[in-house]
Structure formats: C-alpha cells, structure tokens
Design a protein around this nucleic acid. Structure first.
Length: 753
DNA sequence: CAAGATTTTAGTATT
DNA sequence: TAAAATCTTG
C-alpha cells in the first residue's frame, strides 16, 4: 500500500535468492543513504524522524529482515504499531523480504501485545486469566452506573466527558489520588474516578488504558516477568512514535532493559491524536532520554508531487514547537493544487463527482485511486448522496464500527457475562435485553441482595432465595433469565464461537424479538447478527482459534479501518484521522471552512489549533498526484444553513501552487498570500469585510444588531451583525455555547426575545 | 413495564 | 437533521 513501486517490485524479483538481497550492496540499491543507515544501524537506541511519504515502513521492514538475516531469532524481535492494519501490512512485507520462518516474531499493536502478556500473567496481579476487556462503550456505561450510585446528575457530569478525563489521567499513569492533587475543587470527578477504578477491578475487567497500565505494573514489579521479556526481546521497534503515550513509552523502556535496542520511528508533524493522550514529548525528548541515540532524518518524499509537498509543508510550517525539517522530492512539480469554492455542500459534492468522472475519463484513474476526506463524519452524507446519484460505488470508513453496534454488543455481552460473572456492565446490559419484564425495581432488589451477601449479581441470581421482597412474577422472570445465562455458559465451553453465537440468538430470544418487529431497522439488525456469525466463522478459520475469549478479545481490539477492500473499485470516503498512513493518487479534502476545519471546538486553544494544522498536513500529504481542496460558502449543519468563511489554513498555501475555481461572485475574506506571513491562528476575530454592515440599533426585517434571539438548536444568542436585506440577508449571531454563527435569515428559525 | 412522544444535543475515535 | 436520552402514558 505504501509502496514505492520500483522498490517493491524489486524485492519481489529477489524472492528466489533472499540471502543476497539483504547484503549491504543490495540494500544500497533499494534504499537511499539515510534509509540505508537506519536499516544497518547496529546495537543501541535509534530514532528515525520520517517525514510524510519518506518510506518509513520500508525502513522498518527492511531493518527487521536484515536483523533476521544477520541471525537474530524471530522471537527476539517485537515491532509495535498502533493499528491492526499497520501490523498486518508490516507482517506481510517482512515475510516477503525474509526467507526465514518468522513465527515467534511479534508484530502487533501495543494493546494486543499487552493483552497477550496479561493473559499470561494476570494472576500475579490478582486478575483471573479470563478477565474481560471493556471498550469505550462499556467504560461509559460503568461510569454511568457510578454516577447513579454517587447520586450525581448525568446532565452536569456527562459520562463520556468523564471517561475521557479519566483516560487522560490513566494515560499519564495517574490514578484518583493524583487527580485529587491536580484537580483541587473537583471532588465529584475524583469520587467518580475512584469508584470507577474500584468497580472496574471488581468486575475483573480492564479498559484499554488498563491493558497498558497493568502490563507496565507487571514489568515494574514482577521481576521474573520483566527479566523474562527483557531476555527475550533483543530488538524493539516502535512505529508512529509521535502518537505513543507515557504508559506506552514506559513499557518500551522496560522491555528494552539494559540492552536499549529501541528503534523508534515517527514524525512530530503527523501527531494527530494528542486529544487522546498521545504525548508528543516522547519523540521530542527521545534524544534527552537516550543521549547516545543515533538519529536519522528521512526527508526525501517519494509520494507526492512538488506542488502538493510544497503546499502541505507551508501549512504545517506555521506551527511553533516542531522539529524543523525540510522535506524535499525529486518528483516533478506536477499539477497545481486545485481549490474549489462551492456554493453549498451539495455543490461541493457535485464537484467531487464531476472531477472524479473527469479523471476517470482523461487520466484513466480507477475509482480505487480516489479518496475523499472530511473533518467530521457527518459531512459524508452530501458526498454519499451525490456519488449514489451518479452510480459511483463507494466505501465509507469510520463512524459506527461493526462491533459497536447495539445488537452485536448485546449478543457478545451474554458471553462476557457468562465467562466472567463479575462483569457488571455486561450483566446489566442483557438482563432485560430483549425485554423480558425485568425492570428497574427488580434489578435494584437483586443488587441489594448481591451487596448484602457480598457476592456478584450473577451469584445472587443463582441463589434467588436471598433476594428480599420479590414478587412471584418477578421471581419467575429472574429464574428464566438465570436459565438463559446458564445455557449460554454451557455453550461457551461446548461449541465453537460461531455455533455458540448462532445458538445464543435463539436461546436469548433475540432473534424472535427482532423478527417480531417490522421496522426496516430491525431487519438490518438481523443482517448484522448473521454477519456476526460469519465473522466468528471467519475468525476461526483465519486464526485456528476456537475459544470464545479469543474472539471477544479481537472484537474489542479490532476496527473497521482494518478491512479496506481493494478488490472492487470504489471511491473511499473517510475522516482525515482515518487517512493517516494511507496514500492515494487523487485526494479531495473537503469542508475547508472556518469552524469546520479548523473545527469550532479547537478555536482559542493554541495546542488544538496546531493539531488541526497537522491534521490538514496529514490530509494533504496523502495525495500522490492530484489534490483538490474544497470549501462551501454555506453548509447545512444540524439542519441549519450556515454561512462559512474559508479556512484560515488556506491562506498559508502559496498561490503559485494553487489553481482556484468556482464560487464566482461571493469569494470574500480570502486572499492567498505567499511567503511566511504568520496567520493569527488563535483569535476568534470577528469576520471582516462585511458588505452593508448595519449600525447598532438599525432594524432590518425585524432584527437588529445587539438584539437577543433564540434558536431551536443553538439556544439564546446575541446578534452581532446583519448583512444584506430580504431573502438573502445573513445574520451573524453569537451563541454562548456554540460560538459565532453566520445564518441565512431565510432558513434560520430565529425568534426575538 | 414498555411503547410512544418529547426533548436534548451536536468532534476527531489507531486501541 | 438525526440520534439518543428522557418523559409520558396506556
């Protein structure tokens, strides 16, 4: 996928005589000087700063192949990536480069490597070997349970937000005690955090952060474990190092031990997950932690044309606090970057379709060569509609994951609850799903019994007589549920995952429940459940595993982006985040508007604005030959048509690499400036260049500047400005919670108050 | 208790 | 707009 064609075919051609193709001479032929140095570097820490498209995956894979050729045992090497997709790709390429048997070689994501370690040694930290992995949804559910128990309103303390706060602390290896010191005055949060950690442990479950933290704990405190892995892993390679968090860094450190054979590869300009706890200092401080580290800079870009590279570099160069680097390329300047001003999101989508059509016709591009990026998932709709209208097949990535779907999670929850009877979240999820007449009151009684008896909910259920004040019908219903759960339990051990799931659909009554419902939604849910059985079958075939636990583990750790289908020609639609690590001959980056990209929520925070900028850099550098940037003058957001000015980032693309089109009359407030003018990125300055701006107090069509208005979606706000009159007039309103919005009067349902 | 009505909310999501 | 959360009613 990230191949530089000539090299790739080269390595295939050499399959017959692999011993030679990893010699210095041979390597020199397929690698540039810096890549070569990185590949043959011997013992000791190595940091590879690899710009976009500079061939970092090739360096890692060649390095591993070379280590193997030099006689290193496969089991002495571990390569850590962030996605399953990256891991899979890497594994494949190593296999094609190396003639050695690579079994025993670990190429996996951080999380699956940790899970593997933990399944091995869980008992040392008082967890059963069959602990459950909680995904984000489970995590939020558990937090909700804590909120209820503490008596906090979810309104004031949104569980999702709390979960990300908690995660941020855990990412920095901090617990509730540390939070207490750092968030003085936020007693509620500390309370929830504390209870969450307790309940999680009581559930014998681990969230994603735990997978890292508990592994780290093992490595730190269990000498036998630590020395065991240190002895084994003589070489550690870490990809996307800029996106590691503190815990991951520590894990790498501990694994490396005294040998310190760490090879870290990354690019600070491509760090786009800081909002999730990625700690860019890991890469910026590598040299401080390893003063003797060999540092290799990969600055030659093989992917993009000169113009694309130039435009992208200028955008990211506005960031402060980055490692200065000068990406360059031998490639021709190529076509200019095209900038299209659309009237609205439909026009934007039409442009995408028209240009795609033209490229197919004139340049012989396959639909597989075309990708459309956007900042937020909701933007995909207009583009989907347009593609569908013209009969273009497309695939969409991101959004709701298969394993996150309600019906899939429901069924899997039965197995989690069956495997681990301490798992509260799963138990509560299924006790009345499908509805079987067990309501809040009955559950409360069951819970009460569990607490007074000091046992799990599941254990209390198995001993119904301990439940106080239970009516005859409630008892009967609980009894029935108990039977269902125990039937599932017996299937877990007696049947393969696919068969077990298939039978669970009947045993639980889920199938009947959905079939009885005539809504089309239920139909698609049924299809998803069939798909789940298929997925389990496929899993068994692929891995040779037939334990339910293994299937559950992968369901928690896998994502949809892993299954990009290359076989059928489709246009690929995805968020910019998902695009990282991919490349396409033709790329559209859409919605380049103020408040969309950069996103409204990032404004006023310089760190977040820098990340938005890097995000655009990542997006632009995915393109090999053709890059289209689009922005729309108005866009429907949450059902309201909103006028948007172009993204300020566009100002930073030199005009000599740009070709503008579209928009015509209305391109205001946007001038392309070459050179190094620094954009004031941080201020939410009022929109300039209003035509016919009204003075305070003057009334236009029932509205005047300074007036308070109410909006169905954005609540109460104050009118800042009114442009134009009649049908076309636009009103700029400041909403305290949503910021400044420029609304079309025609559409905005504003009422004066 | 559950279905239907109403209200609320709105980002990105490698694991 | 649309999905999810919450409230209302049978």
């Amino acid at each position: 996928m990230m191949s530089q064609t000539s090299f790739f075919t080269d390595s295939n051609a050499l399959n017959g005589k692999p011993a030679n193709h990893l010699s210095h001479e041979a390597l020199k032929r397929v690698l540039n000087e810096q890549q070569f140095e990185a590949v043959i570097h011997g013992e000791g820490p190595l940091l590879i700063l690899a710009g976009a498209g500079s061939g970092k995956t090739r360096v890692i894979t060649h390095r591993i192949a070379r280590l193997l050729a030099e006689g290193a045992s496969p089991r002495s090497i571990i390569a850590l990536t962030f996605t399953n997709k990256a891991a899979g790709e890497m594994r494949e390429r190593i296999a094609s480069l190396s003639d050695r048997i690579t079994s025993g070689l670990w190429v996996s994501t951080f999380h699956s490597a940790c899970l593997r370690i933990l399944r091995q040694h869980a008992e040392r930290i008082n967890y059963p070997k069959d602990f459950i992995v909680y995904d984000m949804q489970d995590q939020v559910r558990l937090i909700k349970l804590c909120l209820i128990e503490i008596g906090l309103e979810e309104k004031k303390f949104p569980a999702r937000q709390i979960s990300s706060f908690i995660s941020r602390f855990k990412n920095k290896m901090k617990g509730p005690e540390d939070a207490e010191k750092e968030t003085r005055g936020n007693d509620e949060f500390i309370k929830v955090f504390g209870m969450y950690e307790r309940r999680l442990a009581e559930s014998r479950s681990m969230d994603f952060d735990d997978l890292l933290l508990k592994t780290l704990y093992l490595l730190r405190n269990e000498e036998e474990v630590r020395t065991g892995y240190q002895a084994r892993f003589e070489h550690i390679l870490v990809d996307e190092f800029q996106d590691t968090n503190m815990a991951q860094y520590e894990i790498v450190h501990h694994l490396a031990g005294k040998r310190r054979n760490i090879c870290a590869v990354g690019d600070d300009d491509q760090s786009i997950y800081q909002w999730r706890g990625a700690d860019i200092t890991n890469i910026l401080n590598f040299e401080k932690d390893f003063p003797d580290a060999k540092i290799v800079l990969l600055e030659k870009n093989y992917r993009s044309t000169g113009n694309i590279l130039r435009g992208a570099s200028e955008v990211v160069s506005r960031n402060i606090g980055r490692k200065e680097k000068k990406l360059w390329t031998d490639n021709t300047a190529g076509e200019k970057i095209k900038l299209y001003t659309a009237t609205d999101e439909m026009d934007e989508a039409k442009y995408v379709v028209d240009q795609t059509k033209a490229m197919q016709r004139n340049d012989g591009l396959s639909l597989n060569d075309v990708a459309v990026f956007y900042r937020t998932n909701s933007q995909s709709r207009a583009i989907e509609d347009a593609l569908r209208r013209d009969g273009f097949p497309y695939q969409i990535f991101g959004g709701l994951k298969f394993y996150d779907r309600k019906e899939v999670k429901d069924i899997l929850a039965y197995f989690k609850a069956a495997l681990n009877h301490f798992d509260v979240v799963s138990f509560k999820r299924i006790i009345n799903t499908p509805p079987r007449g067990i309501g809040a009151v009955t559950i409360a009684k069951l819970e009460m019994a569990a607490i007074t008896e000091g046992v799990s909910l599941s254990a209390a259920l198995d001993n119904i007589s301990v439940i106080q004040g239970l009516g005859a019908s409630a008892r009967e219903k609980l009894e029935k549920f108990r039977e269902i759960l125990s039937a599932i339990r017996s299937k877990v051990t007696s049947a393969s995952p696919a068969d077990a799931i298939n039978e669970a659909l009947t045993i639980t009554g889920y199938m009947d429940w959905l079939s009885a419902d005539k809504k089309s939604e239920s139909l698609s849910r049924l299809e998803n459940l069939t798909e789940l059985v298929n997925a389990a079958e496929e899993f068994e075939e692929r891995t040779g595993e037939n334990s339910m636990m293994a299937f559950l583990d992968q369901s928690a750790l896998i994502s949809d982006a892993d299954k990009i289908d290359e076989t059928t020609a489709t246009v690929k639609l995805m968020t910019v985040h998902i695009s990282k690590g991919l490349e396409f001959p033709a790329v559209f980056v859409t919605g380049l508007e103020d408040n969309m990209f950069p996103h409204a929520r990032s404004k006023g925070d310089s760190a977040q604005m820098e990340e938005e900028r890097r995000l655009l850099y990542v997006a632009m550098t995915r393109a090999k030959e053709k890059l289209f940037l689009t922005h729309a003058l108005t866009r429907r957001v949450f059902g309201v048509s909103q006028a948007n000015t172009p993204s300020i980032f566009l100002n930073d693309i030199p005009k000599e690499v740009l070709a503008k089109s579209g928009g015509g009359e209305a391109v205001t407030n946007f001038t392309s400036r070459p050179g190094r003018t620094r954009t004031p990125a941080l201020t939410n300055r009022p929109v300039k260049s209003f035509k016919n701006k009204r003075e305070q107090g003057e009334e236009i069509g029932g509205f005047r500047v300074g007036q308070k208005v109410s909006h169905p979606s954005f609540n109460v706000g104050v009118i800042r400005a009114i442009e134009g009159a009649g049908e076309k007039s636009r009103i700029t309103v400041y909403f305290p919670r949503f910021g400044e919005k420029k609304l079309m009067r025609k559409f905005a349902k504003l009422t004066t108050i």
